[in-house]
């Protein structure tokens, strides 16, 4: 069975895609101890079972809100086989901001580029193949409300589970220099070794409270 999580900004069509994938077979509950809805379901692609967990809609992964914390902890600790990052094509610039952070976390990503119809009417012409090459991840164009791209998404998820991709994401030299230095320290002092060291380095530099706390519990940073 393949374990997947759906991540994305609020209002990208996550619910529509979750329903299209899982149909009536879904379980609603709450995330442990909090009142945020947790939805899980199962779908099937050519005999392979795919378990789908719907993460709360979020803009960022800094864990400043409960939603962000749930999403981040789930990806880091439960380590789903594939994270489907749903991107609203009509709002692609801001949506890719979360994609960048998911890449920093070194999650095995598939991008569902939803609302292609809206993007078109907004005057956005997106070359999906090029986009996929540029970021080094599979990209599935979708119009979820018309059920377009759902089968392709399943297929891509199954494929991604079998051949994980974690392309590096590089920023400007200045930023990379700071990250590199911190990363050395993270590796040397074995700060949160269960997480990707580059991700930990970035979060420490950002002054992320929860990561600082987690790290501080074991070592003094």
């Amino acid at each position: 069975m393949i374990r997947t999580a759906l991540a994305g900004n609020p209002n990208v069509g996550k619910s529509v895609i979750f329903n299209a994938l899982t149909g009536a077979k879904q379980k609603i509950g709450n995330w442990p101890g909090v009142t945020v809805e947790k939805k899980e379901g199962i779908c099937n692609y050519k005999g392979t079972e795919i378990q789908v967990t719907d993460l709360p809609g979020i803009y960022s992964l800094t864990a400043s809100s409960i939603d962000e914390k749930i999403a981040r902890d789930y990806i880091l600790d439960e380590k789903p086989d594939v994270v489907v990052d749903i991107v609203d094509a009509s709002n692609i610039e801001r949506n890719l901001y979360l994609t960048m952070q998911l890449m920093e976390m070194e999650a095995n990503l598939v991008i569902a580029l939803n609302k292609m119809d809206l993007a078109e009417s907004k005057g956005y012409r997106i070359d999906v193949r090029k986009l996929s090459n540029e970021i080094g991840l599979p990209v599935v164009p979708m119009v979820a409300i018309r059920n377009e791209g759902v089968e392709e998404l399943k297929q891509t998820v199954v494929h991604a589970a079998n051949s994980p991709k974690k392309p590096a994401i590089r920023y400007s030299d200045e930023v990379e220099e700071a990250i590199g230095e911190m990363e050395k320290k993270v590796t040397k002092e074995r700060i949160l070794p269960e997480y990707p060291s580059r991700f930990v380095a970035i979060k420490l530099l950002e002054g992320d409270k929860t990561i600082l706390e987690k790290a501080g519990k074991r070592t003094e940073v």
Binding site: Y97, G123, I169
Partner: peptide, 16 residues
């Protein structure tokens, strides 16, 4: 830096 990187990516695969 993240938005800059996004700008670069979109610059190569999207027209407005």
């Amino acid at each position: 830096a993240r938005y800059e990187r996004i700008g670069e990516i979109l610059g190569r695969c999207m027209e407005r």
